[in-house]
């Protein structure tokens, strides 16, 4: 479904070159929910921009459904961390959700149905005619998620979507994402810097190294399909997986430090 092959990105500024991503290769199967974690500054944003077609890689390819990404792919929706800036304040909640559908030239009745369904799916059926700035942060991010699922994507990218909401809201939104993922059978790539979140959410966790980035580890999360904030997080297996991902990230940091000193 989503294939990233030999992705490399070098930023050129004047005569300076910065290699942000060295060589990334991974694949997501259809309907998979994978989390991507890595030390801060590891090139997650660069990777996401390349996958979403907002930026061209220096070399390597991204394929969605077998087709190479050269611009924003039609079957992909993105949820950004900065919901406040990603939603348009001059549009109401339902107009925000509907705008991408208009650009897709869907008939009006179909658009209306998708907007209503997706807003109800995130629990905001009542707030359709409000403006985003009248809602709390968590609700605003729900609107952004509704916009993404109304788009009927085959791949959903989420870029640290809950980094700016409080812990309780965050737990609710994590469960919401798992619920929506099952209900709408999308492929989800969820980027986060939170190890607990990655292990709790994902069927798989990809650990990235420090920049220049490669895939450091690929961890299968065998916690079952039914997860619960209380019981899942207190399972011994959860702790083990968490410890493994944590250790890998520490390795990644040290590897970078050692590599940096060696050069």
């Amino acid at each position: 479904m989503l294939d990233v092959t030999g992705l490399r990105k070098i930023y050129r500024g004047g005569d300076r070159e910065v290699e942000a991503v060295r060589d990334l290769t991974f694949s997501l199967a259809d309907g998979e929910l994978a989390c991507l974690v890595g030390p801060s500054g590891c090139g997650k944003t660069t990777l996401l921009k390349c996958i979403s077609g907002l930026m061209r890689p220096t070399s390597g390819t991204v394929r969605v459904d077998g087709r190479e990404v050269t611009g924003p792919p039609p079957g992909m929706a993105v949820v950004f961390q900065e919901y406040g800036r990603s939603l348009f304040p001059w549009l109401t909640v339902q107009d925000n959700v509907e705008l991408p559908l208009k650009e897709k030239r869907l008939p009006k009745a179909r658009r209306k149905k998708l907007v209503t369904e997706s807003l109800e799916a995130v629990g905001l059926g009542h707030a359709a005619s409000a403006h985003p700035w009248e809602l709390s942060g968590g609700m605003q991010q729900r609107v952004a998620i509704a916009r993404a699922i109304a788009y009927e994507p085959s791949v959903l990218l989420m870029d640290e979507p809950f980094a700016a909401v409080d812990a309780q809201t965050r737990a609710d939104l994590e469960d919401l994402v798992r619920g929506l993922w099952k209900r709408f059978s999308m492929t989800v790539l969820f980027v986060t810097h939170d190890i607990d979140e990655a292990v709790y959410l994902g069927g798989r966790v990809l650990v990235l190294s420090s920049s220049p980035t490669v895939v450091q580890d690929d961890v299968e999360i065998d916690l079952g399909d039914e997860r619960d904030q209380l019981s899942t997080r207190s399972e011994p297996r959860f702790a083990e997986l968490r410890a493994r991902v944590y250790a890998e990230i520490q390795n990644a940091k040290q590897g970078a430090a050692a590599g940096g000193a060696g050069r």
Partner: peptide, 24 residues
């Protein structure tokens, strides 16, 4: 920039971006 990336990611073309993003 985030609003612009959002518009691009959701397939808004140049005219759509002028009308729905740059104008407001």
């Amino acid at each position: 920039p985030v609003a612009d990336q959002t518009a691009r990611a959701y397939g808004l073309g140049r005219w759509a971006r002028i009308r729905h993003l740059i104008w407001p």
